[in-house]
Write a protein that binds this DNA or RNA. Structure first.
Lengths: 217, 217, 217, 217
DNA sequence: TATGAATGAGGCTTCATTCAT
DNA sequence: AATGAATGAAGCCTCATTCAT
């Protein structure tokens, strides 16, 4: 193994550790409130020194943003993997499935983003986050537009559909983590099927018609 | 003015200041992240000493809960004021209008509640909060039930309707405070009318039918 | 009732309240650590306002000293009441009985005195405390001297006897409140009779003589 | 020097600083009332930052207990160093000499222990303190028992002798730190020899016998 | 005179970040 | 590069004392 190889290996190790730190941080943030998780806690959980964290990230807040970016990139990966000739709906379905998969995680990211929004020193990363998200949303818009053209969705600005769906998902997540409603919703499965049904139909033009037809039988 | 009157006046002044502190705290919490607002900041803003805050509240966290309770009580007041012979829908409409009126405030309360949930020393107040909320929800359920009986709403457990609407409102609020979407939704008014429309129709039985009928023409 | 009488009555009431405050403070200091007892706690327990305390005493520390003085005065009263033709031993016995009567109280006073010792603003009161105590000790010395003259006590400076007894009593009190020894001394009654026995005999001349005789063998 | 050595050195330095903090704290506690000594005062006196204190101890109270433990361990060391074939009395003598060596220190520890007794979070350390003390007392009991067997001490439970001596030492310490008696005892050396004499003879069997004989006359 | 709301100095503790090894 | 001891700003809270009513 020559010097270059060695160096490459080292870089790889370094990157790997970076991911490990982020993974661990995420896990801890989900378990406890992120304010209660100290940098030392993370370092201990990873099994490295506290100082090492700062070789990878300039601040705790940077960890927040990088987690956000990683999340958005993961989503981008999912969207990218879907073939253009797939059922158009699949894209949308995957998108929301991903977002709903782990409500607590999503809620965490929501908080983290709010926390980072102000910080001037993170603006570069925040920008990047927005770029990725923009691109993800663009992908979705393309699909939405196609469906509108097909007459399958109400002819409103595409972002109406996306934002409405986003809001519903966000709302559902909030509901899940709400101390109060958590206890009140007895038939959780039934409820979410009710909600999802509503979400799908939300801007759906043809579906509404179908429902009618169905009911007339 | 006799002694009793004087004492009453004093108590009134005290309560007034309490409200002033809560008002100021709320204002500051909305302006900055509540973690960045120190007790001293609040005291300074009110124009009183730090110690005075602790004559009214036992901890910063108690301020959080009392703010939550005040919010829920305000809502209760609105619900109570509606006459029984009012249009049944008005109750529901008022409820969501109230919640949507100041999304940032609502988002804040969401965070605050999560922060207080753990604290054992606040359990008494948290309980009271839940009681008020329960009573508010009960009121709504009554209306929902009536509408279901009238055949105007889908016959699912009433809390399906409430929770679904809650989720939508929560989602909309989240959307509003989201750094990213905030910039993307150009026609905000249009969008929210679209969303509200969806919300109202969500569990609406007759509407669905009507739409169908309409489309069959 | 004329003005003078009224004023006298008022003064009486005032003095009475002063005693009530001191009584209550003492009770609370004994129940909890005196540092944990706030001036407000005392006022509440007495059923008066916090400010009123400061009409009677200039500071919390003054309460400490006044309690000390009251204690020493109480002792003086006991010593005074003993007739000069009483059994000489009775004086000594009463003195130590008084001090030992409530070990916790005694231990408290010990702490309080240490706390006040430094405070310059209390020096006047501290002086008075010392005066009373001096007079009490003088009385004892008189008795001790008489017993020495009778040849019943070892002919050492009288304060040797007093201080030695004081130390033993103080030690016994300390023992009583010691967390550790408290559990170890099973036969408490037996032990204290053993200890008292030793104390009484401590400077007892006749015993020393016996020892001498023994040693001469 | 390899890594292991370095690490060992580091740990040593760390421990050394820990001792330095404890030493300084003790010194300050003795100079002023421990309540007047703030954590910052200690840090400043040591020449380190306030936060560093908390790398070594979890709270100010923990410093109290560790000081107590150190004191008791020091005593254990002294007792251990005494050879079994030494004069049996030496153990007892050393024990009380140690305790009497620095009355102010002893009085301080007495206060500290009382202060920590309640604190639940210190229970583990308090337990350890009691263990050490128990073992120290056990050693003494062994000696006392032997002396009782030899007929040199009165045949009462061994803890009678220990506790009585403890009380006397405690009393003497109290006397020393008493503002009033401090000034009154002119011939301190003479007095303490008088007191010690009494202490040593306290449970001394041969003397009791004589007394009995005398009383039979 | 009695009151109790207001005060603010001051204490303890936390933790993100730095830096010498 | 990795470490972890050291740092100190900053936060929360307490309570003796004051003072206007």
């Amino acid at each position: 193994m020559d010097g270059l190889e060695k160096a490459t290996l080292r870089v790889k190790e370094f990157r790997k550790r970076e991911q490990l730190i982020l993974d661990t941080a995420l896990k801890l943030f989900l378990e406890q409130d992120e304010d209660k998780v100290t940098v030392e806690t993370i370092a201990d959980a990873v099994g490295i020194g506290k100082g090492t964290i700062y070789k990878h990230f300039t601040s705790k807040q940077e960890i927040y943003v990088l987690l956000l970016i990683r999340y958005e990139e993961e989503l981008a990966g999912i969207l990218q993997n879907i073939q253009p000739d797939d059922d158009k709906d699949r894209l949308v379905r995957e998108y929301f499935q991903f977002r709903m998969a782990d409500p607590a995680r999503y809620a965490l990211f929501d908080r983290l983003e709010k926390k980072c929004a102000q910080d001037e020193s993170l603006s570069r990363l925040i920008e990047r986050l927005h770029e990725i998200r923009e691109s993800n949303v663009d992908q979705l818009e393309t699909v939405i537009k196609a469906r509108i053209a097909e007459g399958k969705l109400a002819d409103v600005p595409p972002y109406f559909h996306i934002a409405a769906a986003w809001a519903l998902v966000h709302g559902a997540v909030g509901l899940c983590s709400s101390e109060f409603y958590k206890d009140r919703i007895e038939d959780k499965e039934g409820f979410f099927s009710f909600l999802m049904d509503a979400a799908v139909k939300m801007g759906n033009r043809s579906r509404l018609k179908n429902v009618d037809e169905q009911e007339m039988e």
